[in-house]
Design a protein around this nucleic acid. Structure first.
Lengths: 105, 105
DNA sequence: CCGAATCCAGTCGGATACTG
DNA sequence: CAGTATCCGACTGGATTCGG
């Protein structure tokens, strides 16, 4: 599949965008990129996200196979989030999005 | 600026996404990529977009410097839309978004 | 031909309080 | 500690009608 001869319009670009669009998703992925983190850590790293929204975005990322949720049956509860292989394949995409925005034209 | 050592989180990725997120924007850019088009042509190429929304997305793309609007003072009116240099710099981004969505993992 | 104006439904994120 | 539950305002896109 050639990158310099794309044909079938941009149907599919929307799909990728739907996965990473969500107010806190890029930031969540960025932090998890540095390593596995517990829920409380993420909450502190993304303090402006309300618990409802934060959990919601984590669930969506998990549902889309971008991150993995591991729950430990302990008291108190412990939950760890990490990036999956599919999620790591997203790094170049996010990097390019970031790069474009910082580009001077 | 190194692509393999991004630091300042992903602030900026959201900015790029905000520019191309909009229900018909990728499709509009795709069609304009084939060459300058009149409003009526775009309307026919993106038939499911209502006139209000279509004009709205075209205006946003114009405001963000992605496309150019050229109006000819004729009767009947004639308006042409084309992609700017900044818009063309967006092709690799859209291509990568498209490519990622078609990738098998 | 190229839009503008109005009204409307659905989705998204935020604030706050509460729970196993 | 790691979430749920409820309510709510803002924004986005859609349907339709009208105008220069």
């Amino acid at each position: 599949m050639e990158m310099n001869q794309l044909n079938s319009s941009y149907i599919g670009a929307e799909y990728t965008m739907s996965i990473i669009s969500g107010k806190w998703k890029p930031l969540i992925i960025y932090h998890l990129r540095q390593g596995t983190k517990r829920y409380g850590q993420i909450k502190r790293l993304v303090p402006d996200a309300s618990p409802k929204v934060l959990i919601q975005q984590l669930k969506e990322l998990e549902h889309d196979g971008i991150i993995n949720r591991k729950s430990y049956p302990e008291v108190p509860p412990k939950v760890e989030y990490s990036v999956t292989a599919k999620g790591r394949s997203l790094y170049p995409v996010l990097d390019l999005l970031w790069f474009w925005s910082h580009q001077k034209l």
